[in-house]
Design a binder for these strands. Structure first.
Lengths: 379, 379
DNA sequence: GGTTAATAGTAAATCGTTTTACTAGTATGT
DNA sequence: ACATACTAGTAAAACGATTTACTATTAACC
């Protein structure tokens, strides 16, 4: 969310070596006469070095089975550098039938909940020399052409799918027949489809425990209407933690939270209108929590003095809310990274795996929106 | 920022026609034996229809110069449907030397300020049958390999660059020699590079006018340290509007605002510590405004009663802040769309153009963070 | 009946790589 | 002197689409 201050688009230190020796004079067959620089092909390099294209290809990829004199190798490398050669992506992809591109279908790029996943995937992909193409899942769903071009046209080697509900099971299964697929933060029953997930259950328990420690006993839960499986894990986390504390979770404390701030505000109004006197709320996602907090402000209910509100998942702006939103942070960046690794393993021919991110536990970020209940001795 | 409620990943209605007729039985030469479905090539279609591959290609692209019987054409179309054929992306790209992919180099996908641009570009790209590859500008800058693969490898047909400062001018010029380039929300002095920008000057004037109308006379300005040219336009907008109102803009009212919420908070503390008694602040970007608002809360200064704060650029969470942040909304979605159109025009061989988005004026979104000054009769 | 024109396609080159199989030439061993 | 092995590469066939130039066949016209 914050801009990296050191992030120049293309810093000066980059300029030197990148364009050294780039120049004209390569084979001219571009159909677009207005580009001044023509891109060198492997044939240009071969000619300049006085060898065959095969030798160039094998030298540049340091093929061990190629017998070549050190001097010749140097000549080839020099020629490649001089012409600023880099293999044509399409030709290479066609020959080796692999594009070096992986797709990430995401619902809403601007949703802060997903941006960490994207960042993690981006990092892991480029670490392994892959390029990440961000496809809008809605576009994919609505535009058959684009989807076909990507999947059937072999434009991508594999795809990371972020599902929001379970209605896509069939299509995932079908896609997985022609392409490696990993579903992100969802469980997959399909053995051909890999999956990674964070520990939603633990996260819900931890954040509920935080409220219990503050002395709350009447803790409501705002559900999320997406990710059926993930949602039930979070709900169960709240339930189990309540039960463990000797508080039988009251059915009336569970409110339908939707998934947007607007939905969260509605849920809050509902709770205030006819619910029991809850003193705290666990929202199944932070956007819901945000809406709930907003509704409290409109209804003149002090947060956290009269109502503590916490969310599941941290996002960069959460600490700048007034009050700052207490949340449990999920390792979503790591989720994105692991998803890419899983996909690359499948590309290597390994069977699909199902992982849960266990190493990095969810952590509670205490901010202003949670405090002891007003009836509690601490208050 | 909010999730589109209708956004299933791949809705059921999509399933029917997409995979109708997908089946096995095509030519088998996949090197990965664990994928059950092999993708059909144009040769498979030609064989099934009993024609040459040339006929298939020309029929599917509805080549006008092809003389073909309606019956034969039907047979070809049927065969393509049956095999669920879709042209191999790499082969096609190699032959026509155009990938159908455009790159968008963005700094921080998760920055809410940029997400509208991405969404607009995404929409426009897929409208014209292009795929958008989101490249992280930092990765591009740090990883020569990736950049070369994209640019010199012809993996993308053109690139949209979002610059943050002017240090990249040289590299942009160099890139523009081999690829069409459009810089987004920045001015370009290079005639070979296209550019689109919103009306930052008007935006600053409008939001300043809003504060003046409320009765403020001591309006401070928090500068932004990026986008040198854009930044000065915003500053000039504030200055001119102040001057027009007969208020000679006091130099001490201009504070260095940085570009993150943290920077904004620091600027606020500086203003409070030794500045004159400003009653309102125009922040050159909304993240700065957010930080400033946060600092006020920590310093126990009521917003907007004791201090009005407004920002330039709207983002989805702005209305859920407490109080909601008054901003001037920039047509950034349109900016992304126009950038893509400009790039596609350049791909068509048209010269690079420089556009300012004039049709859609910036609009002031009044929320809770701005109000009349306490000393004003209205208050 | 012979020329021209339209119809209905096809054959083959091409895009730029990668990779397999092969070939000269030289060196080694017996 | 002959077979064997090594060195230092090369030639050519893919990969899957597009496109240009061409070819049969039939029809029309004078």
């Amino acid at each position: 969310m914050t801009v990296n201050p050191a992030a120049f688009l293309l810093p000066n230190r980059y300029i030197q070596h990148l364009f050294d020796g780039m120049r004209e004079g390569c084979s001219l067959r571009s159909s677009a006469p207005h580009w001044r620089i023509t891109i060198a092909t492997i044939t240009d390099v071969a000619k300049l070095a006085g060898v065959s294209t095969g030798a160039v290809s094998r030298a540049l990829s340091s093929d061990k089975t190629l017998n070549i004199r050190a001097e010749t190798r140097e000549r080839i490398l020099d020629a490649a550098r001089t012409l600023n050669y880099s293999p044509n992506h399409a030709a290479r992809a066609l020959r080796i039938s692999s594009s070096g591109v992986i797709g990430l279908a995401v619902h809403d790029v601007s949703n802060p909940i997903y941006s960490d996943i994207v960042a993690g995937a981006q990092a892991a992909a480029s670490e392994f020399g892959y390029v990440l193409t961000l496809a809008d899942a809605d576009v994919l769903a609505n535009d058959e052409q684009v989807f076909r071009r990507l999947v059937s046209g072999k434009a991508i080697d594999g795809i990371l799918l972020q599902t929001v509900d379970n209605s896509a099971d069939f299509i995932i299964a079908k896609t997985a027949e022609s392409l490696p697929v990993v579903v992100v933060n969802a469980d997959s029953t399909n053995p051909a489809v890999g999956s990674v997930a964070v520990d939603d259950y633990q996260a819900a328990r931890l954040i509920t425990a935080h409220l219990l420690e503050l002395g709350h006993t009447k803790i409501a839960y705002f559900t999320i209407d997406q990710h059926a499986d993930r949602a039930s894990l979070r709900l169960r986390g709240w339930m189990d933690e309540m039960t463990k504390a000797g508080l039988a979770p009251d059915e009336s404390l569970i409110v339908d939270g939707g998934h947007t701030p607007e939905d969260g505000a509605r849920a809050m109004q509902l709770l205030l209108a006819n619910g029991p006197a809850a003193t705290a709320i666990v929202a199944a996602n932070s956007l819901i929590a945000l809406g709930a907090m907003n509704a409290c402000q409109l209804a003149n209910i002090q947060v956290p003095q009269q109502m503590s509100i916490v969310g599941i998942h941290d996002f960069p702006l959460a600490r700048y809310l007034n009050p700052g939103l207490t949340v449990v942070a999920l390792p979503l960046r790591e989720l994105g990274e692991r998803a890419v690794r899983l996909l690359l393993d499948q590309l290597d021919g390994q069977p699909a795996r199902h992982e849960k991110i266990a190493g990095l536990l969810p952590t509670v970020m205490v901010r202003g929106s949670s405090g002891p209940p007003s009836s509690h001795p601490n208050s």
